[in-house]
């Protein structure tokens, strides 16, 4: 092996002691074992890249022909009739339902999740912290199909009268107008989604809150701040990027949640009129695809669903990227 020269990555420069957490490639040798093992590790990483690339490529390749034959506007039409001689399909309804339900979920889950994280890190008595954190983590372990069942069979009958009450008193407000849908509504799906993503918000927020430097906290307390003032002046500002990225990851999860939503949505009749009401029904991207899995009969039809899946992919990708960027920026600050 010849000497490595001219490594430009300035960020890799070690301290003069030579302490550096990463191992350089020079630690490995030209031995067969090293070549095989290092090769296998590299290959695995490359496989991951290839898989992700293929996912994008296959979805695009199969969506494009269907989109070319589409006689409706893909982004602005509410029609979904991908079969037949003259396929016509648009995703507006799914986009609205998906985004609206996820937004409701965020509005509910983020404040509660942050509250729970603050409770677990700042307020709970020490003996309760471990068990309580485990309890919240358990929520994350429950399979989403179970949330779906519970929402469908147990929670919906309890929720329905509440929704009727809201419609009676606040129905004049466009977002809360009655629509006559008897099954699960956007708002209801939002509530169930909020329960599902709560552990994500809590887990990540808890992590960053727990990392608040003791010096900051003690600094505030030494000035005579109450516990809440200490949290407001040191814990919350320190944890804000963490909370934002937690919310984004949770949003990504909510957007793509499939089975629970599939159990709960009420499909809209063809040609039903447009309403802004959150008490309307409607399919999300994921539920539409899942509900029609049996219909993937011809490439054109399948392509329409794949095109819808592609939009969902892009949507979650954007949301997750925002989360990553926020996390990275925070890392840059703390390191």
């Amino acid at each position: 092996m010849s000497t490595v020269t001219g490594v430009s990555a300035a960020d890799e420069l070690p301290q003069p002691d030579g302490k550096k957490p990463r191992q350089g490639d020079r630690a490995s040798t030209g031995r067969i074992g090293d070549r095989l093992f290092g090769g296998a590790a590299t290959l695995s990483g490359v496989i991951v890249i290839v898989l992700v690339t293929l996912i994008g490529a296959f979805l695009v390749v199969q969506a494009v022909p269907a989109l070319m034959n589409n006689s409706a506007s893909f982004f602005t039409s509410r029609v979904w009739a991908p079969g037949g001689e003259q396929p016509a399909f648009g995703i507006l309804e799914f986009l609205w339902t998906t985004v609206a339900a996820s937004t409701v979920a965020m509005l509910l889950a983020v404040p509660v999740g942050v509250g729970v994280a603050l409770f677990l890190t700042q307020y709970a008595p020490t003996w309760l912290r471990g068990p309580a954190a485990t309890l919240v983590d358990l929520l994350a372990a429950v399979p989403s199909i179970v949330y779906g069942l519970w929402g469908l069979v147990t929670f919906f009958p309890v929720w329905k009268p509440v929704q009727n009450g809201i419609e009676d008193t606040l129905g004049w407000f466009p977002l809360l107008a009655p629509t006559g849908i008897s099954g699960g509504t956007i708002f209801f799906i939002g509530i169930v989604l909020s329960i599902m993503v709560l552990p994500i918000v809590t887990a990540l927020s808890r992590e960053v809150f727990a990392q608040t430097p003791t010096a900051h906290k003690e600094g505030a307390l030494a000035l005579g701040a109450t516990q809440w003032e200490m949290i407001r002046t040191s814990v919350l500002p320190f944890g804000r990027p963490g909370v934002i990225s937690a919310a984004m990851l949770a949003l990504g999860r909510a957007l793509g949640e499939t089975i629970a939503v599939t159990f709960l949505v009420s499909a809209l009749a063809d040609g039903s009129s447009w309403t802004w009401s959150l008490f309307n029904g409607g399919e999300t991207f994921a539920s539409k695809i899942a509900n029609n899995a049996a219909e993937f009969s011809n490439p054109g039809k399948t392509g329409a669903y794949i095109a819808a899946g592609l939009v969902l992919f892009v949507l979650t990708f954007i949301v997750n990227s925002i989360a990553r960027v926020v996390i990275e920026r925070r890392k840059a600050f703390t390191e």
Partner: peptide
């Protein structure tokens, strides 16, 4: 042993 650090050379 300096070689296990990236960029180490003599």
């Amino acid at each position: 042993m300096h070689e296990v650090v990236p960029g180490g050379r003599v």
